[in-house]
Design a protein around this nucleic acid. Structure first.
Lengths: 127, 127
DNA sequence: TGCAATAGTTTCAAAAAATGAACTATGGGG
DNA sequence: CCCCATAGTTCATTTTTTGAAACTATTGCA
């Protein structure tokens, strides 16, 4: 049973990591970040890609990410005006986390199940 | 602008990673997992450590994690009966994700802010 | 028989998040 | 002076999540 890394982080960790879950939280955040990992995006683009997200939810999310310093918002006046959203350095720095999630899914994703006992895994024991 | 890893994962990724966010989602999940990273825990122990979580929320969380194959539940009859929760292999496999979050926080945590413009960071530009 | 200690469940209320529909703002062109 | 396209905002409603309080179940023992 090797808890190496976590042992190092010990108790200070939950508190340390919580702010990040505030960032990743929310129904659409994940898709939104993936969209932005692939480059600068305009409001309308995001709205189309994340269909059927509501414009309110999209602005809520973007404002939160902006507040946390994850994205920048650049306004281009002119007709019609447009606005571009782009990841900051710390926003791009989120990638290793997603990479780790991806690795986990590769390794253990097949263990996932929705129906209890679907794959004959035992998670309940009577001793 | 180096989107290396994500570029590799491309579009398949959001769908691939989503199941994991289902696991990590929820107000208490993070603390709960940290508690279990440090070893086997009984229901009452978890309840005390996560105070003031309600027993309902705790069972909801544990049942979800069990369903997803992240924890096992072992019942020890006898008086008084007790139940132990323990991470499965895939549950322990979540650690690198937390490690990546921890690294992110070390690197960028200081950029985080609650109040708009608190640290003089520019996230809004007019071009 | 009833109490103690464990691990829950049940029911209902409260709070938080997401949605839908309609509306605002901007400014050049017809 | 109205229209177009952009990027939102506002407000009421629905859905989801969380919580609090009280209750159930098990079983050995006094």
């Amino acid at each position: 049973m090797n808890y190496g890394v976590i042992m190092m982080m010990d108790r200070s960790c939950p508190g340390t990591v919580e702010p990040i879950l505030e960032i990743l939280d929310g129904k659409w955040t994940l898709l939104l970040l993936f969209e932005l990992f692939n480059g600068t995006r305009r409001f309308g683009e995001l709205r189309r890609k994340l269909q059927p997200i509501s414009p309110k939810t999209l602005t809520d999310r973007l404002r939160l990410l902006e507040e946390k310093g994850i994205v920048t918002r650049t306004i281009y006046p002119g007709v019609p005006l447009h606005v571009e959203y782009e990841l900051t350095e710390s926003g791009q720095g989120l990638q290793p986390i997603f990479a780790a999630m991806w690795t986990w899914t590769q390794e253990y994703g097949s263990y996932l199940r929705k129906e209890p006992n679907e794959m004959g895994q035992e998670t309940e024991k009577l001793v």
